[in-house]
Amino acid sequence: MKLLVCVSQTPDTTAKIKFTADNSQFDKNGVQFIMNPYDEWYALVRALELKEQVGGTVTLLHVGPKENEAVIRKGLAIGADNAIRIDAEAKSSLFVAKQIAEYAKTEGFDLLFFGKETIDYNGSEVPAMVSEYLDLPFVSYGIEMSVEGTTATVQRDIEGGKEVLTVDTPFVLSCAKGMAEQRIPNMRGIMMAKRKPIKVVPAVEAAVGAELVGYAYPPEKGDVKLIDADNMDELVQLLHNEAKVI
């Protein structure tokens, strides 16, 4: 099978989030970037497992400038066969989705893997957009998948439970926790990754969609009010009279 895994990079989970003085841009200074965990742990690893089961190739795709190549190398070290970098700043989800779709439309991939969302903007937007641009079925929030021939059976998260469905390839899949287990690249993988090809593809013209106006910090949280363990009546009264939530 010909498998595509789209990966994005995000600030590390523990990164301190700050903006430029006028709050118009995210301040990247001193921020450690990582491969988006959903893309790495679930989408990439599940694609590798599928390749191990049925054969084929796993291609990694990233939309971003050259300085993001560390993320691509990591994906290659984990086991992807080759990589595509579309040479453009990821201006918006719509822009990125168009780049991916333009590349993928003539490549004949059987399955396109994405993480369920990125941990910075939590939008869950790109895989849905790619599936629309390519007119493919979209299976979101997959937590388990088995593949027989060209038919996949996928279990997906829905509100308060699960749904089981079947779909034939090709389709777009977004992966949530449960789809696979994280793999740590070993030394051999890291060495091999240095020799694997990264093909650089120029970006196409694309709409940007929503335009960022600016950022704001959430209101400061006041100090915690501690209540004595033997005085739960007081806590109940505070929740009722002060917080007004019960």
């Binding site: 600030p11 989970t13 989030i17 903006f19 941990i119 910075d120 903007y121 939590n122 969609g209 929503a210 335009e211 960022l212 106006v213 600016g214 950022y215 704001a216 910090y217 959430p218």
Partner: peptide, 14 residues
Amino acid sequence: GVFSGKAFATYALK
């Protein structure tokens, strides 16, 4: 909300 609730972003939709 963005960055897992650590900030808010405002967008213009035109």
